[in-house]
């Protein structure tokens, strides 16, 4: 039996396509991250979110610590939590080739509609993402109830607000580059941003309190249906959402000063829970982190079972998994 196992291992190792085919010329990938955290403090009529700033700062800080010294990075942080009374919104850049965080000078007109906002973000990067690079788009804020659209900007005087739809994000922003693309959303109804892949989801609403649970019979029928859909086998954009398309996400639960979805992600990424701040970790030395690892890590670190049922993280259903970070 042992000889057979050794024989089989050798056979697989020697004939596996992945080992046989040269990956070609590969350049060191660079991380480009856009992180948005909106608290609505100045709006007055939209519910204020107290801890999106914590989510934004801790997640970007933890990811910077993970990649620092291992790959180049550029991180853009967009938030409404400015200390300056004259500036409602602020865009900051942190890049591996520069020391510290720079506050970029932009005005209201550069953010006030999604297309101007996307142009501003694209211009704020000092270099253009290439094919092997990774772009992460992170959002913590409100999601529109009907569509899940991201409420990223508001005018504190007119009380008007602006949103980003899934198609605007995918087609007008992320499709500008050929890089690998990952979207992480900690917002209500964010399941709307997950495109149907060539697979069907096995999670379905039970009809009680928007609970999302595994259902075999629904999964079987939707699996048959998915065979006739013309969706892509290899998704252009991978998404991890904090909730299903009719579910909400939550923050400030049991004294946790984060959104619970982002908190689960931070715990997986090994942030310093005791000090509630980004930390340096060796947990991922010599290994990769893929979309599946992140999704799995979020589920395993989800703090409350009762919230998991009504605020269930989702991901793009795909036969292929995408590597986000490679620390080998």
């Amino acid at each position: 039996m042992r000889k057979f196992v050794i024989f089989l291992t050798l056979l697989v190792s020697l004939t596996s396509c992945e080992y046989f085919i040269s990956p070609g010329i590969q350049v060191e990938p660079k991380l480009y991250m856009v992180a948005i955290g909106v608290g609505y403090e100045r709006h007055g009529t939209i519910n204020e979110l107290k801890f999106t700033k914590n989510d934004l700062e801790d997640l970007t800080g933890q990811i910077r610590n993970l990649v620092d010294g291992k790959m180049e990075y550029e991180i853009l942080r967009f938030s409404d939590c400015s200390d300056n009374e004259d500036e409602a919104f602020v865009l900051k850049r942190e890049a591996s080739q520069h020391n510290g965080i720079e506050t970029l000078k932009y005005g209201k007109e550069d953010f006030c509609n999604p297309y101007a906002f996307f142009d501003t973000l694209a211009e704020a990067f000092t270099t253009m993402p290439e094919k092997d690079d990774i772009i992460i788009f992170y959002y913590a804020g409100h999601g529109d109830e009907e569509t899940g659209n991201l409420v990223y900007y508001y005018d504190s005087l007119s009380k008007d607000y602006q949103t980003i739809s899934q198609r605007e994000l995918f087609d007008s922003f992320l499709s500008r580059w050929q890089a690998r693309r990952l979207v992480i959303l900690d917002s209500c109804f964010s399941g709307n941003f997950i495109e149907e892949g060539d697979l069907a989801s096995t999670l379905f609403y039970s009809g009680k309190d928007s609970e999302l649970t595994f259902n075999l019979s629904s999964s079987l029928s939707s699996s048959f249906t998915s065979l006739s859909l013309g969706n892509k086998a290899k998704p252009d954009v991978f998404v991890i959402s904090g909730s299903g398309y009719v579910q909400s996400t939550y923050e400030n639960v049991a004294g946790i000063e984060h959104g619970i979805f982002t908190y689960a992600l931070l715990k997986y990424l090994d942030y310093d829970e005791e000090m509630d701040e980004a930390s340096f970790t060796t947990k991922f030395e010599g290994r990769t982190i893929s979309v599946k690892d992140l999704y799995d890590g979020i589920i395993k670190n989800f703090p409350f079972k009762e919230f998991y049922r009504i605020s269930t993280p989702n991901t793009t259903p795909s036969k292929l998994d995408m590597t986000v970070f490679d620390f080998r």
Partner: peptide, 13 residues
């Protein structure tokens, strides 16, 4: 066969 992808909660036939 009913094919299940346990890590990502997805399936196909």
């Amino acid at each position: 066969a009913y094919r299940h992808y346990p890590d990502i909660d997805a399936s196909t036939i």
